[in-house]
Structure formats: structure tokens, C-alpha cells
């Protein structure tokens, strides 16, 4: 298959985005707004988004950012830490694995109602829900990654007489990154969904909450503007994770084929 020059790709990419925005602006509203205004054209939505980002940065945007960063941060750290421990203790891993797989298969959003009863509202709820709901991909991936480190790497470390703990951080963890980082991306995806849902159901601040408010007061522009803001946040977070992955996982030719 041929490859395109970077300039061509840039151009085409811009073209794609431009066409999509044009559709949003000129084609979608007339089609859908037949009975009542339900879709805001792109310019309106963008205006609302800019509004939110400027005037309401502290009231609306910051709580959400705080929650996602703290929630995801805890999920990631806990997930990797527990994964390292479990990956190194085979019998423990085998024992807890069925229950963890079960928890991983449970739709994460379903814990929100009882979490509201237990944790209350606003940030404790949202963060708690993010952690309990989204930790599983990174936890399970880390466990697998650490347990399946290439045995000869461990031999190399043993011959060099490197202490066990040091081996964990200088050999097992780097060797496991091709599996751990995609797990982090899945965790982030889940975390975002949980943050927004949590805010919509159990918070009185943040983007999720303001989206619900906007819809209930028929503020169309804001309903779509909020989506744009969340898109930007999601996009930035994804870019950070992908660049991490690119930086640390390039050495694994197998991982390079990973689309997700």
C-alpha cells in the first residue's frame, strides 16, 4: 500500500475535520430541527464551549478535571501497584483471578447508585466511582504483564545478582509496559465515562452536571458546547497517554501493531 507524504496527510486531515464541521453547521440543524430546535449549529456550540472554558473555568471545568485526574491517578497507581504484587505471587494471582475477572466484567456504571448511598455526592462519589469502576483493565493487564515477563530476562538479572525488588522496577516493569500502557488507555476511557455519568447523577458541579442542567433548561447551545469541552479534555488526556505509549513501547515490534 502506498504511503502519503506528511503534508498530504495534514491536508486531508484538515479537510476531513472541515467537512465534518460544515455538515454540523449547515446540514444537521435543518434536518433535525424540524419541530423544535434540538441541534445547535457548530458556531453556537463552539461559542458556548468557549464561554464555559473562559467564564466558568473554575466553577464548571475545574471540578471535572480534578475528579478525572485524581480518580484516574489513583486507579493507575493502585492498579499498577496491586498488579505488580499479584504478578509476582502466582498462587495469590490464581486465587483472586476469578473474582477480579468477575468484577472486570461487571458494567462499571452499575455501582453508581449504591455508591451514592455510601459516598454521598460530588467529588467523593465521582472519584470513588472512577476508582472502583475503572481500575480493572490496568490492574489485570499489569498482573498479566508482570507474571509473563520473559523468563530469560529474569535469568539475566539473577546472573547479574540484582536484588529482587530492583529487578521488579528495572526489569519486570519495563518489560511489562507494552501490556500495561494499553490497559491504562482502557482505564482512562472507562474513567471518563464514569466521571461524566457520576457527575450527571450525583454532583452539583462539573461538566456532567452542567450538561444535564443545560438540557433540562433547553439551553441547546450549552448542551452541545459542553460536549465540545468534554471532547477536548478527553482528547488531551488521550494524547498524553498515546505519547507515553509511543515513547516507551516503540521497542516492542509486536505492540506496534496494536491499534488500540
Amino acid at each position: 500500500m502506498k504511503t502519503l507524504a506528511p503534508s498530504q496527510r495534514l491536508l486531508l486531515g484538515f479537510g476531513g475535520v472541515a467537512v465534518a464541521l460544515l455538515l454540523w453547521q449547515f446540514v444537521l440543524p435543518p434536518i433535525l430541527n424540524t419541530r423544535a430546535p434540538v441541534v445547535a449549529p457548530f458556531t453556537q456550540a463552539a461559542g458556548a464551549a468557549i464561554d464555559i472554558l473562559t467564564t466558568e473555568l473554575l466553577d464548571t471545568v475545574w471540578p471535572s478535571i480534578l475528579r478525572i485526574l485524581v480518580g484516574f491517578g489513583i486507579s493507575a497507581l493502585l492498579g499498577v501497584a496491586i498488579g505488580m504484587v499479584l504478578g509476582s505471587i502466582p498462587w495469590l494471582q490464581r486465587l483472586v483471578r476469578p473474582v477480579f475477572d468477575f468484577l472486570r466484567a461487571t458494567p462499571a456504571t452499575i455501582i453508581i447508585p449504591v455508591a451514592i448511598a455510601f459516598l454521598g455526592l460530588n467529588s467523593p462519589l465521582v472519584i470513588g466511582v472512577i476508582v472502583f469502576g475503572s481500575i480493572w483493565p490496568v490492574l489485570i493487564n499489569t498482573t498479566d504483564a508482570i507474571a509473563r515477563v520473559e523468563p530469560q530476562y529474569l535469568d539475566v538479572a539473577r546472573v547479574a545478582r540484582v536484588a529482587r525488588l530492583r529487578t521488579m522496577f528495572t526489569v519486570k516493569l519495563p518489560a511489562g509496559l507494552p501490556l500495561i500502557l494499553p490497559g491504562l488507555r482502557l482505564t482512562m476511557q472507562l474513567a471518563l465515562v464514569l466521571m461524566v455519568t457520576g457527575e450527571m447523577l450525583g454532583a452539583s458541579s462539573g461538566l456532567g452536571f452542567s450538561l444535564v442542567q443545560a438540557q433540562q433548561s433547553f439551553d441547546i447551545a450549552r448542551t452541545y458546547g459542553g460536549i465540545i469541552v468534554l471532547s477536548i479534555i478527553g482528547f488531551l488526556l488521550d494524547v498524553i497517554l498515546v505519547s507515553l505509549e509511543k515513547k516507551y513501547v516503540r521497542y516492542d515490534s509486536r505492540a506496534g501493531k496494536n491499534a488500540l
Binding site: E150, Q152, Y153, V156, V171, P174, A175, L177, Y248, Y251, D252
Partner: peptide, 10 residues
Amino acid sequence: QDYSKSLFPW
């Protein structure tokens, strides 16, 4: 023997 698994790729 297996040099591909002898050096750390990172």
C-alpha cells in the same frame, strides 16, 4: 543462546 531474549529491548 537466545540473544533476542538476552538484551533488554528498552
